[in-house]
């Protein structure tokens, strides 16, 4: 196989230069001070690799992680005006659901490679092409070398590469593997606010930053994506629902 990447300069010195946090990276803020303030670069660095994994192997946590990424990509797509490329070997994403997190079908191109190797190649090709505003990839196995390469091309093209690390089995933590990702996240679904009437409130997620360059790990509860992909901080717990819920009552006319 003849590839152009063999010739990439991979000296330690070079790695060091690109690994050093630089203030003038382009940043994608979440727009939530509570979250942005705790991130080293006050948001996500645009030209970087970010990894997200579900807290547990349950499908609901996986769905929360999926939508967390979709929201980031949606905001970036709205900002940059390019399509989002979603690369996954599986095919169970439900597009209407993604659209409700702000990532409409008009902004989304799907690629379904046969295996992880092809998947990584597609991601690299796509980022190098420079068209997409973000690339999301669902990967279960990814070597350190691969993450490093993706981080490099992402930085080069100034395009976010968002990796959904899927679990290969129940006990394995995908974030236990080493990675050159800029940030690493763990997402789980959390109980929503109880409404006074029959119904389910806005989604809530347990969002955990497991690792970030130049910053601390932390964890917090956030409300899930709205229709523009924005997260929110839950309102302080109150008794709004109990007070005002329920039907209005009148004296008989």
């Amino acid at each position: 196989m003849i590839t152009a990447f063999e010739s990439l300069p991979t000296t330690i010195a070079h790695l060091r230069t690109i690994a050093t946090p630089v203030v003038d990276h382009r940043i994608m803020p979440f727009g939530i001070p509570a979250l942005d303030d705790r991130l080293a670069s006050r948001g996500l660095r645009a030209g970087a690799l970010h990894e997200v994994a579900a807290q547990s192997c349950s499908m609901v946590d996986d769905a929360a992680a999926t939508l967390f990424l979709a929201g980031i990509a949606a905001r970036e797509a709205a900002h940059a005006g390019g399509p989002v490329l979603w690369v996954s070997c599986r095919n169970d994403l439900y597009a209407p659901g993604l659209e409700q997190a702000g990532l409409s079908s008009a902004d989304l191109i799907h690629a379904q490679p046969r295996d992880d190797a092809a998947l990584l190649a597609v991601v690299e090709d796509a980022v190098r092409d420079g068209t997409p505003s973000a690339v999301i990839a669902e990967v279960s196995r990814m070597s350190m070398v691969a993450t490093r390469r993706l981080q490099l091309v992402a930085a080069d093209a100034d395009i976010p590469v968002l990796i959904l690390r899927r679990r290969r089995n129940r006990d394995q933590d995908p974030l236990a593997e080493p990675s050159a990702a800029w940030t690493r996240w763990r997402i789980a679904s959390a109980s929503s606010e109880r409404l006074g009437v029959a119904g389910v409130g806005r989604s809530r997620w347990q969002v955990e930053v497991a690792r970030q360059r130049g910053g601390e790990a932390f964890s917090m509860i956030l409300e899930g994506c709205d229709e523009t992909g924005c997260l929110a901080v839950p309102a302080a717990l109150g008794h709004r629902a109990a007070e005002t819920a329920g039907p209005a009552r009148y004296a008989a006319a």
Partner: peptide, 27 residues
């Protein structure tokens, strides 16, 4: 604001994994 034409990206990906494997989801 110029919406970037996805055609080139599509060609690139299709060139790598085949035209059938690149698609949109339409309603």
């Amino acid at each position: 604001v110029l919406v970037r034409d996805p055609a080139r990206l599509v060609d690139v990906v299709a060139g790598r994994i085949g035209a059938d494997a690149v698609f949109r989801i339409a309603p």
